[in-house]
Amino acid sequence: MRPVQRLHSAYRDDIGDLVTRRPVPGPGLDRVGAFLFLNHHGPQTYPPHNRGLPFGPHPHRGFETVTFILEGELAHTDSAGHESIIREGGVQWMTAGSGLVHAEISPDGFKRTGGPLEILQLWVNLPARLKMCAPRYVGVQADAIRAIPGEGATVHLVSGAYRGEAGAIESLTGVFLSWVEIAAGGRVTFEGLRGRDVFLYGARGAIEVGGTLVPAFTLAELGEGDAVTIEAHEPALFLFGHAEPIDEPVVAHGPFVMNSVAEIHQAYADYQAGIFGVAEIVRG
């Protein structure tokens, strides 16, 4: 079983009136292998006639963003022509690849009426062979994501395979991603983890991993092993994923993640030259 080596509490880094916590990158933890970055927005309740989310058009290249909408809704548009509004329980998976501009904002309806909001956004690295692939976007609502029940735990399977079921989204690099709702007294085990980069973040409630308590808003850095069992003594929700290690240099600057400084400079030059295109703002 994989033991907990260290715990990393998410630190507050609010963006305007958006409550934001970030466990990685942070002090003592630059990344978790292929998993580069996590922003936990909320939980909070927006009043009527709010300004909504602040993520207007901005560029990316060289990695993927996976956005879990735990509460509320999120509008996506990008310069490759993709557009959607994904609601509570849904997921947006964007492969930036060679580069695009996208916007992630609140739909007009949410800004008018307000409501609860909680979103997790995870950045996943791409190997050099895929960093310049064609951009891709998949948005799925909650009813398209398989919810697999177990011993007091429900695994919401986004990508990869679990107990003979396939995730709603096919990852280009075989990444497994899920979020798990677990009741008091529940437990869930994930196997086949040997040699994989494993990502485990407690979003709500406290969970226990190998006798170590992992509070909410905490990332658990795990040791080696083939399996991990997560238990709960209170209702909880956590994000769990694993990926094939990418044994390549990682150079990240702003919205770009490449393999060299020269590639970062080229990304900025291409963006400033307009090569990434323009993202229109979604209404609705």
Results as ranks from 00 to 15, higher is better:
I169G: 10
G150R: 10
R146L: 12
A142G: 08
I145G: 10
V138A: 12
P135K: 06
L172W: 00
S171T: 09
V158Y: 01
Y162M: 02
R146I: 12
P135R: 10
V158C: 07
H156I: 02
W179P: 04
G139E: 07
L172C: 04
E181Q: 12
I145W: 00
S171H: 10
G167R: 07
E181I: 05
I169A: 08
V138L: 12
A147G: 11
E181V: 05
G139I: 02
A161F: 00
A134M: 11
G167E: 12
E165V: 06
E181M: 00
L157Q: 06
I145P: 08
A166D: 09
L157S: 04
D143V: 02
S159R: 09
S178H: 03
Y137F: 15
G150Y: 11
E165F: 01
A166L: 12
P149R: 12
A166S: 13
A147R: 15
M132V: 03
T154N: 03
V155P: 05
Y162H: 15
L172T: 13
V138K: 15
G139P: 01
D143N: 14
G167L: 04
P149N: 11
G167Q: 09
L130D: 13
G152W: 05
P149W: 10
Y162E: 00
D143K: 11
A134K: 14
T173A: 12
Y162K: 04
V140T: 03
E170G: 13
H156M: 04
L157C: 06
V180S: 09
A147I: 06
A144T: 10
V180W: 03
L157M: 03
L177P: 01
L157V: 05
A168Y: 01
G174A: 13
E165K: 02
G150T: 08
W179L: 11
P135G: 10
A168G: 08
A134L: 06
A161H: 07
V175H: 09
E151C: 03
V138I: 15
Q141D: 14
G150C: 06
F176K: 07
A153W: 04
V140R: 11
T173F: 00
P149G: 04
V138M: 11
Y137T: 10
A147K: 14
V158M: 01
G174F: 01
E181C: 09
V158T: 08
A144S: 12
C133F: 00
A153Q: 04
D143C: 10
W179F: 15
W179T: 08
Q141L: 03
G167F: 07
V175D: 10
C133N: 08
A161C: 07
A168F: 05
G160N: 07
S178G: 09
